[in-house]
Amino acid sequence: MEEKLVISSSPHIKGPKTVRGIMLDVIIALIPACLASLILFGWKALLIIMASVASAVASEALYEKAVKREVTVGDLSAVITGILLAMTLPPNVPLWIPVIGSAFAIVIAKQIFGGLGCNFVNPALAGRAFLLAAWPMHMTRDWLNPLTYDAVTSATPLAVLKGTGQGTLPGIKDFLLGVRLGSLGETSVLALLLGGIYLIARGVIDYRIPLGFLGTLFVGTLVFGKPGAFFQGDGVLAILAGGAILGAFFMATDYVTSPVTARGRLYMGIGAGFITLLIRLWGGYPEGVTYGILLMNLVTPLIDRFVVPRYYGYAHDRAAKEAAAGGR
């Protein structure tokens, strides 16, 4: 019997957390937003989410089969990519849009670079950026009126704010509930916040990223939001309109493409908020969340290189910084 004792080096016990469990938590956190999209935009929303998830999972499995790698759809990360991409799509897009977007997200943005953990940009956002560049007409005009499900091509609140579209701005209550034009999952602020708070409470995401992101956007818009006058902008509206909340809680917090240190994550959030602000106020597009996060994804390795904690026992973090900089 004694021969059967396992010999290994410490630690001999491991915690209960698993990658799958974390991914499952993210999916749970997305359920309120999914439900909200169903109520607001009807069965079309369900079809888009299903098409997107199915395409993401199938692309991952097929690609891994093709290159003879282990099929890893069981880790559920592809499901999240699928849901997240669907959340960013206008509710009236043809179904091939989510299918192609998810396939691009999984194959081009994730698998080609080595799969889970190796992608350098958030796959869902890369998919969205691709769709936006490829079929801009669908991505900026295929809206549905919430609750009535009429197809409309009028301007989203952000476009109205920017002055590039005609329309009326909904009230705060409508923003919170999501009764306004917008992508599937970005409209219902309450549902998104519910999921975001769940993720923070479960320790899945770091509050610093959404805090930095939304904080920067709020303050920046407050200060510079109105041309010609400081401190006249509507910071609250900047957070409520558009995809800032979806991006801040669910996209920018993607582990693989955000920094590993707490301070780094705060900087990442601030940076993403700042770029979003730049694009919204002075850029060509009405919305900048996608590019704000994507650009910060690219900067993440730099942040990881220079934002390192002061190691225990070292007087200044210069030594540590040099160590990290030289080490990479």
Partner: peptide
């Protein structure tokens, strides 16, 4: 599994 860079090990390290 592959590292997903979640940073939990960084938060856990008592020596930072």
């Amino acid at each position: 599994l592959p590292c997903i860079r979640c940073g939990r090990c960084v938060d856990a390290c008592p020596l930072r």
